[in-house]
Amino acid sequence: MNVEELVQRYSAGERDFSIIDLRGAVLEEINLSGAILHGAMLDGANLRRANLSQATLSGAALKGADLTQADLSGADLSDAVLDEAILEGAILDSAILDQADLKAANLAGAVLSEADLSEADLEAANLTGADLEVANLHQANLSKAALERANLEGANLEDVNLAGAKLEDAKLEDTVLESGDSTLIS
């Protein structure tokens, strides 16, 4: 299936595009709100400013994809592979990212308020200035992550790996650190 056919079928009311292969495709500003893209192969795709709100992208491959300023609010990205993806300024409020692979992803300025990032791998991710207010990061790996100026107010950081993480000027009011090793915060 190519991009034109996807747009046509979506416009006609079809929503299930599981396991679609659009690696490297240009999908900039596309509206796929509520689409089911479970297991989709979107490595290296251009999804800048795309509307993927409420979409199901569980198990999707988005390695190196450009999701700059994309709307992923309420989307299910559980078990998705987003390592080295660009999510700068993306809206991910209330998104499900449990067990997602976000190694070295760029989430600078992203909105992740109330997102579920439990057991997510955010090693060396750039979360500078990101909004993680009331986010669930239980057992997440944030080792070597850049969290400068990030808003972590009310976030759950229980059992989080923060080894080598940078938290300068981060907002940590009402943050839950119990059971975690707060000595790893640098």
Rank of each mutant, 00 (worst) to 15 (best):
N2E: 10
E5F: 01
L6A: 06
Q8R: 15
Q8F: 05
Q8A: 15
R9A: 07
Y10H: 09
Y10I: 08
S11I: 03
A12C: 02
R15I: 03
R15H: 03
R15D: 14
F17I: 12
I19G: 00
G24M: 09
G24R: 06
E28H: 13
E29Y: 05
I30R: 09
I30Q: 03
I30K: 01
S33M: 06
S33P: 00
S33C: 09
G34H: 00
I36C: 12
I36G: 00
L37H: 02
H38T: 14
G39L: 09
G39S: 07
A40Y: 03
M41C: 07
L42C: 10
L42V: 11
D43T: 01
D43N: 14
A45M: 12
A45T: 06
A45D: 11
N46D: 15
N46R: 14
L47T: 08
L47M: 11
R48S: 14
R49D: 13
A50T: 12
A50S: 14
N51C: 06
N51H: 13
L52C: 04
S53P: 04
Q54P: 00
A55I: 08
T56A: 02
L57M: 05
L57I: 09
S58C: 10
S58M: 03
G59H: 03
A60R: 10
A60S: 03
A61R: 12
A61T: 08
A61K: 14
L62F: 10
G64A: 03
A65D: 10
A65F: 05
D66N: 15
D66G: 08
L67D: 09
T68K: 13
Q69G: 00
Q69L: 07
A70N: 11
D71I: 09
D71S: 13
L72V: 01
S73V: 04
A75R: 06
A75Q: 07
D79C: 04
D79S: 05
D79K: 11
V81E: 11
V81W: 09
D83A: 10
E84H: 15
I86F: 01
L87N: 03
E88S: 14
G89S: 04
L92Q: 01
L92C: 12
S94H: 13
A95F: 08
L97Y: 04
D98N: 14
D98I: 05
Q99F: 07
Q99D: 08
D101I: 13
D101H: 03
K103V: 13
K103L: 12
A105I: 06
V111Q: 12
V111L: 10
S113F: 00
E114S: 11
E114A: 06
L117K: 09
E119I: 04
A120E: 06
D121N: 15
D121Q: 04
D121R: 12
E123K: 13
A125N: 02
L127T: 09
L127P: 06
G129Y: 02
A130F: 02
D131I: 14
A135Q: 11
N136G: 00
N136F: 06
L142C: 08
S143W: 01
E148P: 00
R149K: 09
L152W: 07
E153T: 15
D159E: 14
V160E: 11
N161T: 10
A165Q: 01
A165G: 09
K166V: 12
D169G: 04
K171H: 08
E173H: 14
E173D: 15
D174V: 03
T175G: 10
L177N: 07
S182R: 11
L184K: 14
